[in-house]
Amino acid sequence: MDVLSARPTRRSLLSGAVGAVTLIAAPSILRAQTKELVVGGAAGHKPWVEQVVVPAFEKKYNCKVLFEGTRSLVNLEKMQKNKGKQYMSVVQMDDPVMILAVKEDLLDPLTPGKAPNLSQLVPGSTHMEGMWANYLQPWLGVAYSKGAMKTPPSSWADLFDAKYKGRIIIPSLQNTEGLPVLFAAGMLTGGTLEAIQKDTDAGFKKLASLKPNLLTIYTQQPQAYNLLEQGEAYMIGPAMSSYALERKAAGAPIDLVAPKEGVFAMPSGIAVIKGAPQAELAFAYVNELLGAELQEKLAGPTFSLATNKAVPRPAGLGADVTIHQIDWANVAAQRNDWIKRWDREMAI
């Protein structure tokens, strides 16, 4: 995900070179002089973390931040293996994986005392008694091909329209962005968001009627967008703003709309690891990412919603659009059963 240009600045090159030389010459000196904070996160976050967050934080707190970009489940594994002797202090992961980390007692709860910006967040941004918080939320709407569709879709129900036979792509339930397809289908049958999340039966039954329209169910996001951009697919739903709008900005003939029933917020969580080295610095890092100043800089290039109340909504998402928050603890409890039913009922 090339959100920001990856061009190295002269400063980063210089400091990198100096750092490398110092490391070779006397590694212990470097460690003794500056405090080091290791942050684990998604590989796709690397550009904006290293170009926006890290320089600002290092300057303000006179320390060194190392960002390890990988997958959420790999971060979880690192935390499990190093329990009691953690080397990472902060972790940025998807909410479903955060729940697993809470179950394994790997996180240190956030409090307004340790991270004051916690009290500035929109409701629903902290989870499981402050175990983690959402700093940015990509939103999920319907992406469509501008070449294939003269009028943009306006409702989740458009995916079900019989005239789009074989032209619709949805994400697999194994992808985090795929889960809301079940809730969107449930909402179309009526019922509150809370009810249709707890009991997905109506959603599954509605989804079965989508089968003739399905071109495919994707697990690889780039493949799905490839088909949309080439006009083989007409719509992808749910589609992630952080991906769809980035493709649009790159010139792809697609756009993303917010359906009238509302959009879903995707989870991007941040937490402090239990027994973290440099715990104070770790909470300061989380606090900065929850602050308006950094979120304002990041919301644009990552095409995401900020969770700090002071930051306005991004362009393209009107003030009247409902943003649904997903109950991730409920998802974690039921997801495997949903995947089982999905495999049986959505098969070709």
């Binding site: 495919t216 697990t219 997801r335 495999d343 098969a347």
Partner: peptide, 25 residues
């Protein structure tokens, strides 16, 4: 199969991958 036919056609190999990687079963 993951790229040419997708999620709707499960084989033993894709089910194995999914069980380990996503269902953690």
């Amino acid at each position: 199969p993951s790229l040419v036919i997708g999620d709707r056609f499960q084989t033993l190999a894709t089910l194995t991958g999914r069980s380990f990687l996503f269902m953690r079963n």
